[in-house]
Design a binder for these strands. Structure first.
Lengths: 243, 243
DNA sequence: TACTCATTTTCACCTGGTGAAAGTGAACTG
DNA sequence: CAGTTCACTTTCACCAGGTGAAAATGAGTA
């Protein structure tokens, strides 16, 4: 790979879901590029539309990348396919609905339907959730190669609330239960006051390629919602098999 | 701009919504790059994840760009804000719902809710619609600077069906009516058997920044749906003004 | 087996990218 | 108000990394 290309992509890779707009100095700090080089790259990316420059001189991801990314067939097709089922689930429950895939040891949210009157959730499309503390995450983790769990355990499990499962043995048992029940629960493990129940979206090859969840107030009966979310996940899975 | 950056972006810019996966030879033809240069760029973009290489050697937009693009705040925020209202509209009508913005003389679809039992529509998120022949397009065109209409007329209005408005005078009158009524109709002008009604999403500054539509069978009473779509558009517009 | 065509690789050449240093401008402080 | 600081933004001598013509490879076809 050309040095220039690698460095150019490195600038883009500075941006994550919860990254606020970045200044040039912050991009320099994150990439290690000399200031004028970073300046030139940022200027070029901005000219192309891949970055937007704000009036205060900070940069954020630009519309050009949204336009290109929207063409990515793999996840566009999954989103299109899943959205009607997520709609049905939303209509039946009026809670928040999320669709996530496994990516870089996180659950990456690729579609989301919010009810502003349900529990507030912090996730956005393109945002990431911890695998060990969320419904969608546990589903994905339960069906991933064991090395992933091992790597997570080696890195340590962040305790997000006092309910978060942070002990390796407890998590392993929980994941076994996920595989057995075909769904996963998170009860105030990610955020106090919020719970979720998720089910796997299964590709015809048998691989779990995504997970769909309902996120609701912790007072809501997640067991009752479990049937609904599994039904939606089954519908999506069936659609993956084609007409 | 560095020559390399410009050319690298040029490779990405080969891809449009209805572009099938492209072979290296096709990318060469579209960019004018020498074969080894294009080869190297494509290899680099693939290594980074911006392009995916299919087993048959053709390339398409990769997931990395989806992930980055999903972070683009401007349209992500609009989509998030609009989606609940689109949900409500879908729930009320069970027809296809689209949200589009003006981009490069087209209506660019940025969110879409399909009902598979309604009329089939060809549009996908990231796809483009002609301004003169669609509900969303006419809304955007009606509120755009007059130079845009002049440019479209100079380029000629493609006749997509026998109902498409292709005469400049008729279109100008239709757009005046859109501005007066606060909504636009397309009656089999885009596709035979399909019609749509759209309304403008207005920013607090007064600028029409998007348009939301219902797409249904041509047999459906669009006049009745007009009230609903205007209600949704008004809700989105109000949300733009903040809490 | 020979031919064709779409890649994929090689490598001599040179030009375009680099980054240390300098310049600029805005904000802050005394 | 003048001086200082800091985050950019620009300059330009230098050279290394990118280029593309030509060759090689591999798959498909007749």
């Amino acid at each position: 790979m050309t040095n220039l290309a690698r460095r150019l992509f490195g600038v883009l890779d500075c941006f994550e879901a919860d990254t606020p707009p970045l200044s040039l100095t912050e991009i320099v700090a994150r990439t290690g590029l000399p200031m004028p080089t970073a300046w030139r790259y940022v200027r070029e990316l901005t000219a192309w539309g891949g970055l937007d420059r704000l009036p205060d001189g900070r940069y954020r991801i630009g519309f050009r990348l949204w336009k290109l990314g929207a063409l990515s067939p793999v996840y566009r097709d999954l989103r299109e396919l899943a959205l009607p089922y997520m709609q049905d689930l939303y209509q039946a429950t009026h809670e928040n609905i999320q669709l996530a895939v496994l990516d870089e040891r996180t659950a990456l949210c690729i579609e989301k339907i919010n009810n502003l009157r349900s529990v507030a959730t912090r996730t956005r499309v393109g945002g990431r959730l911890p695998l060990h503390a969320t419904g969608v995450g546990k589903v994905l983790l339960a069906h991933a190669p064991p090395e992933l769990l091992a790597a997570l355990l080696a890195a340590g499990l962040p305790r997000l609330t006092r309910h978060t499962i942070a002990q390796p043995g407890r998590l392993a048992r929980a994941l076994a239960e996920v595989r057995e029940q075909g769904m996963a629960f998170s009860r105030q493990e990610m955020s106090l006051g919020a719970g979720s129940v998720a089910a796997p979206v299964v590709h015809p090859s048998g691989e779990v390629i995504a997970s769909v969840s309902i996120v609701a107030h912790s007072t809501v009966d997640l067991d009752r919602l479990g049937i609904a979310v599994r039904t939606a996940a089954a519908g999506i899975s069936r659609s993956l098999a084609g007409p």
